[in-house]
Design a protein around this nucleic acid. Structure first.
Lengths: 335, 335
DNA sequence: ATGAAAGCGCTAACAA
DNA sequence: TTGTTAGCGCTTTCAT
């Protein structure tokens, strides 16, 4: 059923129907209620595309990972996407998903969606490094966009920013360990020594505790990598009393390796992970770790985007979502 | 830029541009290439909504979980959604995501999308139980829909079906255990004794091995639940030689509990999980488990939907995606 | 407060 | 082979 058929069936003009639907323009409350009631009764729903064509807005937002799904692990994704979708839904926007493996493909699709006006705005998940020129290009289409990344992005019109502040949790870990009296501290990194490592080392230094190079290892992704790193670290004549692993997966492997050489965690060795994956909640002992607040990130990104959508003029200030320490039972005061 | 402006700028009619874009209708290859080239040059992209309005098809598909996200765990979601999105992308369709918590809300949104023609079709993830009347209602809108569930759905026009055959993997586990000489076998269930349990028990019976009630426990979701169940099972004077846990999470807890009472896995007790979550690949020992093929499910669902989209006439036969056994190191021949 | 009518940008008959 | 034109279903002036 079209608005024409519907309007003539209930004996009003299409303009009146439209006014009743949107609640704007002059219309008496009585007619409005009548139209709304009969819409339900006759099951009339306006054609989405006709509305979009005439208003020029699609009421859709794209979510794109630019092929960098690894960086925000799978489990982060669901929480993030759900938070975004629900926040968008509340304001009548829909979420268009782009999960292409290849970032080039991903971008191609995104550009087409923007140029063809299929989406009004974009949420980009950028991981560690942000391609500023890409953002400038997107901005040149005058379509709002917000970037979730480890850094803030400023000074590009139409581009908002949500920064995942991993340094915060890392500093909290440093503080915790120093508070508990640890002085020989190890770090097991993922492929790259990143902002977490930097912040951790800096904070330790600030607290008067130097991170010795021999206790800093770059391991990899898997639990086996973590186990290997821990085993290697434990070959030193003077062992660390606490180890911070860049990911929970590494930490889990490290935990196993420590147990394998007869060490008790946390009695003989304190251990801290990062990410708060479910498994670290029920290993033995449950690991102290750092949590990334995905839902908050999603919400912040959505709010930023909605604000850009309403007034492209003022780019809202970057939002920060710090990671935070989750205390469990794998850290004790050093003997 | 609109098609009008573009067409007059390059000196042809809008019809010619449209023909060039879609490659149908009579048009010389020369003009076609020319138009395409100038499109790139001038950066003209047709307005999505105008196209949709006039063709009456939205080139969008909705993915909906009906608020039942628990059932397909988070990690399944990403693989599934990605497979679907990529398969859709290849045929020019976009994916509209619906992750609402509440199934009522979820349905409301879905109905609006369908009625307003915002989507051409739907992929529903239904988990264990399928609401047939709901499907009939959706079908009455004459919008294709495919259901991913544990059962097949047949006989509803416009409704396709992809069945996740968990019974297959369950039977493989039964066979494996019997092959390895196990006769006293335990089962740790999640909240409900489901198709996995049924198939497992049936297959055991078929192989001449009865599952004793005292070795069948209904535990819960968490690893702790699994640990508790295993501890209880091990209080029996005659212990099982092998245990099948309904989820890997339960199995991981059970593994810990077995170790805690001094049992070696698999030497003293064989253990099988279900779901193939990453963690079971790197625990000690790596667990034999059952894998659910999410990407295949997504692909099958998408193919089914696309076929329905092309010809609503013949509902394609239900597709089956069996779960399969993943052999690792937690099962040995019984002594 | 309500109605008439002019588009929104595109596709697809129909004409040429 | 190409152009002309009538819609697609809606919103929004501008009249009334």
């Amino acid at each position: 059923m079209t608005i024409n058929e519907f309007a003539s069936q209930i004996g009003v003009s299409t303009a009146t129907v439209s006014r009743a639907i949107h609640g704007r323009g002059r219309i008496s409350e009585k007619t409005r209620q009548m139209v709304l009631a009969r819409m339900k009764e006759l099951g009339f729903t306006p054609n989405f595309h006709a509305q979009r064509l005439v208003t020029g807005r699609s009421q859709m937002v794209a979510l794109d990972f630019l092929g960098e799904k690894q960086i925000l692990a799978d489990m982060f994704f669901v929480t993030l996407a759900q938070a975004i979708q629900q926040a968008l839904h509340a304001t009548g926007y829909g979420l268009l998903l782009n999960l292409m493996d290849d970032s080039t493909q991903s971008l191609l699709q995104l550009r087409r969606w923007i140029k063809s006006r299929a989406v009004d705005g974009t949420i980009l998940v950028a991981g560690a490094k942000v391609d500023r020129s890409l953002l400038c290009e997107l901005a040149s289409a005058r379509t709002p966009c917000v970037v979730i990344a480890q850094q803030t992005v400023k000074g590009i019109p139409f581009v908002g920013s949500v920064a995942l502040e991993l340094s915060h949790g890392a500093r909290q870990v440093a503080q915790l360990l120093v508070d508990k009296g640890h002085r020989r501290i190890g770090f097991i990194g993922a492929e790259v020594l990143d902002v977490v490592y930097d912040a951790f080392r800096e904070e330790l230094e600030r607290l008067g505790c130097l991170l010795s190079d021999q206790f800093v290892l770059t391991a990899g992704r898997t639990a086996q990598d973590g186990a290997r790193a821990m085993a290697q670290m434990l070959t030193h004549p003077v062992r660390p009393t606490a180890v911070f692993a860049r990911t929970d997966t590494l930490a889990l492997g490290a935990l196993q390796a420590a147990k394998d050489v007869g060490l008790k965690v946390p009695a003989d060795l304190s251990l801290v992970g990062h990410d708060d994956i479910p498994a670290v909640g029920w290993c033995d002992p449950p690991l102290t770790t750092v949590r990334v607040h995905c839902a908050e990130m999603g919400l912040a990104a959505t709010e930023t985007l909605l604000s850009l959508l309403q007034s492209n003029l003022l780019p809202p200030p970057p939002r920060h979502v710090p990671s935070t320490l989750v205390l469990r039972q794998s850290v004790v005061t050093v003997k």
